[in-house]
Design a protein around this nucleic acid. Structure first.
Length: 918
RNA sequence: GGGCGAUUAGCUCAGCGGUAGAGCGCCUGCCUUACAAGCAGGAUGUCCCUGGUUCGAACCCUGGAUCGCCCA
């Protein structure tokens, strides 16, 4: 026994030690830094970059586990694999965090200025980003840290600037005044996707506008409207009715007066007015409501903005100026009531748009923003989807993606923030001007120098250039991620040439729109390629109460807590074996008092099992030369060797096929079953028999098989549990540290070993052994009490098989002796009072007349009889159905008859025995 | 309003046409020197309800219930 073995045999499994060791080695040996010129087909995943908003949660751990299994599996298949890590600057989220911190200091961003603010932001990024990276390393992520990227890296910023310029040159980017989703909390525009609809209990206020005569006289006639937002009446520029509404036809083109601001506005007709909503007559505020905006466009209405960017009312609100929007609402209601114009207040459930980040109601606000035209881009992606580009796994998400592309609106890409990619547009102001409005001319350029030359060319001299202060939506840069990280716009970059398009994108369904669709659109636009072949969509991690784990609800579980307790291998395996094929959410059980998780614990136990199985093999190793199984060993293989090799190779086929189809959970379960049940529970026990006999020729073969099977299964489990398998593989194969399991090859499939006859025989053997054990328990025998066993059957094939394994049966069942005979060879009367059972066509007797409680024996036989009879009954029912015989497949019918025959035989035997007992 | 998913053992979930499965938990017996983080044995189910298709339905189809999610 050599030293390295000593180390292993002495120690217990300590996950943290093993994991730290190999993480360090992988790092120092640059194990996962591929060269594009290395051999092997390319396989590439760029990881979904976590936001630098703090630390990782369980969802990240889940995503990481999934990606790493795929990546490590492909690496074992011999592909040239790149997995590229990185983080995202998360413009709005990080800015919000920083603003909050400033608030604690009693400051705001304006107080400290852009430069200082960005300095703080970078400091924050270093902290949070660093923490995230160290967490990812603790999970054992086999990514190339040398290629780590951050969305605000200089290189990636160049890509963003280039992308913006190209889009602008293609006339897909435009600047314009539109109604945008304004978040008064972050004081920025946000995209449609960052708006969350929430149902709230509100009111529907009914009030009336006085009609005025042609001469401008206020008449004693009114039109009544119903609205959930009465304060916007200050910005009304029309009332609208449905043209087919008989009640209102006569009012069309008449005028009414807006209370408080004394504006005369027309009554118009528009087909989109719902006759059944409220009174059927609606107020139209184009500057503050998307529907009204559309009505305004159709009818050439004025847009009057009554609000400031912080949600207070502006000068257009008259005497309500400076009031907060919600205070103004109360005040206006009160005053309408005083004027006798308020007619009704109804309770009303309505859905209000909320800012995803700011958690305050969105204000639709008229403002000048940058937009990306989507219809051409989205339709080219839809076209690609016809040929399954990309392929969604599971397939149902394809529809979600498609529907969104079908109904897409132009994308508002500018954000009134500082943290992010500043928009590469420069305004050209005459020396006398100092303000920028929507009509100010601008140039888009790669840099200030280019901007200057462009501007000079277009506008001559005497101007000043001012760069747009705004930044781009975070998802603009994320949309470029699959190729900006590989060197784009330099399409000659070796990484880009080798690994683009990526192989698969692995992400949660919650960002299909935000991210997946943006990447396909950007990818298609800039590279004329969908950026990844497959999209694997996984579910969310839910807590023990089936709630989504999130920071805001405070139910997140820190992955590191579980890693510290059980090891990263255990956490990974626990998450992975929960994965169903359908991409369902997974639930992680967790005891918040004890900080324990029985799911993860079970996986840790599995790791421990592998550890100890290896320990067993090493302890029993008798020689240290070449352990590989060679041709000449073949003829010495005994039945159990052949059986385990058959099982092993079946496992190999199944698991590699499943993994190629991304069926990760199923693979994990199969590996678990094989390693624990087939290998540890059975094969190792067979091996122990052979080890008892030191002279046995089989011993050496058995050692070789143990090592071979264990090695192969460790390789197959490696993608799931990389650390422990790396450790055990080294011990078992006696390899130096710089040779890594991570870089080995998937076990070669040896189909010649697959033998279904042996599988079946062993299945029968196990059932017989189980029956004997069962009988012993019922007899109340202690494990130390050895008793003889008789196996009686006329099935020669079976008895011959059992005879070769007689020693094993003896040990497995703690029998003093095992007799196998034909029924004619014995006198059953001698066994009348033996404890016995029947399985298949074999009868098992424990001839222990003294021990046997006759009543217990009768009970047992009656129980068996009952079961057999009920089986016979159902089988008879099926067979007596003529249709079944005619229509069911032949093999099913035959099987049915065979089972019936066997059942009847059993029933007969049991009856005979019962008779003997009387 | 439109769409998607879920409903199977006490719990978490597999199975998706041929006599109901796993892990955890539970019960019984074992410290059998690889492993008590273990071994052996055991108990436990109107497979949400309703019709229908089929020789045969947990599985396919109608309709419905409950829970959850997405979009408007």
């Amino acid at each position: 026994m050599n030293e390295s073995n000593d180390e292993l045999t002495l120690n217990n499994y300590l996950p943290s030690q093993v994991e730290q060791k190999w993480q360090t080695h992988w790092d120092s040996f640059r194990a996962f830094s591929p060269n594009p010129s290395d051999k092997g087909d390319p396989f590439c995943i760029v990881i979904p970059p976590p936001n630098v908003t703090g630390s990782l949660h369980m969802g990240h751990a889940f995503n990481t586990a999934l990606i790493d299994v795929i990546i490590r599996f492909q690496r074992l298949l011999g592909k040239n694999v790149l997995c590229l890590p990185g983080t995202d600057h998360a413009s709005i989220a990080v800015q919000t965090i920083l603003e909050k911190k400033l608030k604690v200091e009693g400051k705001n961003s304006e107080d400290i200025g852009r430069e200082e603010f960005l300095k703080r932001a970078w400091t924050w990024k270093e902290q949070s980003g660093g923490k995230i990276i160290s967490q990812l390393k603790r999970i054992g992520y086999s990514v190339d840290w040398e290629r780590e990227r951050f969305t605000l890296d200089e290189k990636l910023n160049e890509a963003v600037v280039e992308a913006f310029n190209i889009l602008h040159e293609k006339k897909l980017i435009y600047r314009g005044e539109y109604l945008v989703n304004w978040c008064p909390a972050s004081q920025s525009a946000v995209s449609d996707l960052e708006v969350e609809m929430q149902e709230v209990n509100g009111y529907l206020w009914h009030f009336k506008y006085p009609l005025i005569s042609g001469q401008g006289q206020i008449l004693d006639e009114y039109l009544e409207v119903a609205t959930t937002r009465p304060e916007t009446l200050l910005g009304d520029t029309a009332l609208a009715v449905n043209p087919n509404d008989e009640r209102y036809k006569k009012y069309i083109d008449k005028k009414v007066k807006v209370p408080f601001v004394d504006r005369e506005i027309p009554v118009i007709s528009d087909i989109h007015v719902d006759k059944d909503f409220g009174t059927g007559c609606v107020k139209v505020t184009p500057a503050h409501d998307p529907n009204d905006f559309a009505i305004g466009k159709r009818n050439n209405l004025k847009q009057i903005n009554i609000m400031n960017k912080d949600g207070t009312l502006n000068i257009n609100a008259g005497k309500f100026q400076d009031l907060d929007r919600f205070d103004a609402r109360k005040q206006i209601i009160k005053e309408l009531d005083n004027l006798g114009l308020l007619t009704k207040i109804e309770n009303y459930k309505n859905t209000v748009p909320f800012s995803d980040r700011g958690k305050v109601p969105i204000e639709p606000l008229l403002s000048t923003q940058w937009f990306l035209k989507m219809d051409n881009i989205s339709s080219s992606c839809l076209k690609e989807l016809d040929s399954k580009k990309p392929t969604f796994i599971p397939q149902r998400w394809e529809k979600v993606y498609k529907d969104w592309l079908d109904n897409i609106n132009d994308w508002c890409i500018s954000r009134q923030l500082w943290w992010g990619h500043q928009i590469p547009a420069w305004y050209v102001l005459k020396q006398s001007e100092d303000s920028i409005d929507q009509n100010t001319p601008y140039v888009v350029a790669r840099n200030e120098k280019e901007a200057l030359s462009k501007a000079t060319k277009e506008f001559g001299a005497n101007f000043q250039l001012i760069r747009d202060k705004d930044v781009l939506d975070t998802w603009f840069s994320s949309g470029l991620w699959p190729f900006s990280t590989l060197g784009w716009p330099n399409t000659n970059d070796a990484d880009f040439k080798k690994w683009y398009p990526n192989s698969v994108l692995v992400t949660g369904f919650d960002i299909i729109f935000f991210w997946v669709a943006r990447m396909t659109m950007m990818g298609k636009t800039f590279t004329n390629n969908i950026p990844f072949k497959d999209v694997y969509i996984h579910g969310l991690v839910r807590d023990e109460n089936n709630k989504k784990m999130s920071k805001s609800s405070g139910n997140g579980i820190d992955p590191l807590l579980l890693i510290d307790k059980y090891g990263s291998d255990a956490l990974r395996f626990a998450l992975l074996r929960e994965v169903a094929g359908a991409g369902q959410d997974i639930r992680l059980d967790f005891d918040r008092k004890e900080n324990t998780s029985s799911t993860v614990e079970a996986s840790r136990n599995f790791a421990n099992k592998l550890w100890n199985a290896t320990k067993f093999v090493l302890i029993n190793k008798t020689f240290s030369e070449n352990y590989s199984l060679n041709e000449s060993d073949e003829k010495y293989l005994d039945l159990s060797d052949k059986w385990i090799l058959s099982k092993l190779n079946q496992l190999n086929t199944k698991v590699s096929n499943l993994l190629i189809e991304y069926k990760l959970g199923e693979s994990a379960k199969l590996l678990y079953e094989f390693a624990w049940n087939d290998f540890c529970d059975w094969y190792v026990e067979f091996a122990k028999q052979k080890f008892n006999n030191k002279e046995s020729h089989n011993r050496k073969i058995s050692e070789k098989i143990l090592i071979k099977v264990l090695t192969d299964v460790l390789v197959m489990i490696h993608p799931f549990m990389p650390h422990i398998t790396e450790e055990l593989w080294h011990k078992l194969q006696i390899k130096p540290e710089q040779i890594l399991l991570s870089l080995q090859k998937w076990p070669v499939l040896e189909t010649k070993y697959i033998n279904s006859q042996i599988d079946k025989s062993f299945q029968e053997l196990f059932e017989i052994i189980r029956l004997i054990r069962n009988l012993r328990v019922e007899l109340g025998l202690k494990p130390s009490q050895l008793v003889p066993v008789y196996l009686i059957s006329d099935n020669v094939e079976l008895t011959n098989f059992l005879k070769t394994l007689i020693v094993d049966i003896k040990t497995f069942t703690k029998s003093s002796e095992v007799f196998i005979c034909k029924s004619k060879d014995i006198d059953k009367n001698n066994f009348a009072k033996s404890f016995s059972g029947i399985i298949g066509d074999i009868e098992v007797y424990l001839p222990l007349n003294d021990f046997v409680n006759l009543e217990a024996l009768k009970d047992r036989l009656n129980k068996d009889l009952q079961k057999v009879n009920s089986d016979i009954e159902t089988l008879n029912k099926r067979i007596s159905n003529k249709n079944f015989i005619d229509k069911a497949p032949k093999d099913i019918v035959e099987e049915c008859f065979a089972k019936l025959k066997e059942g009847k035989l059993q029933s007969e035997k049991i009856n005979k025995k019962l008779k003997l007992l009387k």
